[in-house]
């Protein structure tokens, strides 16, 4: 298909598990060579959406067309064009990386020779050629994730569906995975990428979809979505002793978030990052001892917060620091 043409079209998708509605009127589309991120908290419906796209689940209502095929009637045709990287490390631990990748290549219909060649190529793409003969169980978590990705791309799918493929991986592996996905998209693959790491969305995806409680609450480029959260930066200060009053008086474009979290802490909203130094200077010149301060620019999480009133994750900051981002 031509670059930019929609290859995945989903309209009014509904899915329930018993009485629990997990997808409600979801619409989305993905174009050739585009990476679309699916962002939402746990339980938002990301995995269900991807499972329907991967033909593992059937929607209760709505329509899914992939590469022109209806997912209900032409699931096999879709599967031949689809690559799926599940959230779990779907590998045989006692087989080598090569054997795993080669197996799934064969299962996707490649001949023996082609499968071997494709497996070597896929492993090279994820940077594991030198570990191809190691059994999966001895590989690190990040390497397993990369093998997991290799299994999903070994047959060169037109559409690649990834369900949180970077959970728990080291930075090196994450970089490799994200680079690989970008290469694939550049080569013409349409990629649907589910994660609750907004940083990955911001870095990788051409478009993002925000989903919560089974409903698509926003979609667009990252910048478009972040703009939904407003443009003000958030500065949080912790003082030794009581936070000083009137600290930001006279500094244009700075206001305080009321009520303050505590007597020692203060949250300020800044219109410009240049105002940060001014606020700090004033605090220090007044003899206040600042124990800690942090600066937070608007992002997708804020957009999600702005749209839903809830955080994207329970502890976004902690997780971000753990991931070294």
């Amino acid at each position: 298909m031509a670059a930019g043409a929609p290859i995945v079209e989903v309209s009014r998708l509904r899915k329930s598990y018993g009485s629990r509605l997990v997808l409600d009127e979801v619409n989305l589309d993905v174009r050739v060579g585009e990476i679309v991120g699916l962002l939402g908290p746990n339980g938002a419906g990301k995995t269900t959406t991807l499972s329907i796209l991967a033909t593992l689940l059937t929607a209760d209502a709505g329509e899914v067309r992939i590469a022109g095929y209806d997912s209900r009637r032409d699931a096999q045709a879709i599967r031949r064009r689809l690559g799926f990287v599940p959230q779990s490390i779907a590998l045989y631990p006692s087989l080598t990386a090569f054997q795993n990748v080669e197996l799934f290549a064969r299962m996707h219909g490649l001949g023996a020779r082609a499968a071997r060649s494709a497996a070597e190529e896929a492993l090279a793409r994820v940077g594991l050629s030198n570990r191809a003969r190691d059994v999966v169980s001895v590989l690190s978590g990040g390497m397993r994730r990369r093998v997991n990705l290799a299994c999903g791309i070994v047959h060169r799918p037109e559409i690649l569906v990834l369900d949180e493929p970077t959970v728990g991986v080291d930075p090196q592996s994450r970089e490799r995975i994200l680079d690989t996905l970008r290469e694939l998209a550049d080569a013409g693959a349409a990629i649907i990428y589910s994660t609750h790491y907004m940083e990955e969305i911001e870095r990788l995806c051409d478009r993002a979809l925000l989903i919560d409680h089974g409903r698509l609450i926003a979609s667009g480029t990252v910048a478009e979505l972040v703009a939904l959260a407003g443009s003000r930066h958030r500065m949080e200060l912790t003082f030794q002793g009581k936070a000083p009053a009137r600290l930001y008086d006279g500094i244009a474009g700075v206001s305080a978030l009321e009520p303050a979290p505590s007597a020692e802490r203060m949250v300020l909203l800044l219109g410009d990052l240049a105002q940060v130094s001014r606020v700090l200077e004033r605090a220090l010149s007044a003899g206040n001892r600042v124990l800690e301060f942090s600066l937070h620019s608007p992002n997708l999480s804020d957009a999600f917060m702005a749209l839903t009133g809830r955080a994207l994750r329970d502890n976004d900051a902690d997780s971000a620091s753990e991931r070294g981002l």
Partner: peptide
């Protein structure tokens, strides 16, 4: 099932 290989095999079209 737990590893996810079953799911992956299904998606493979088998």
């Amino acid at each position: 099932r737990d590893w996810g290989t079953l799911q992956r095999l299904r998606v493979s079209g088998a």
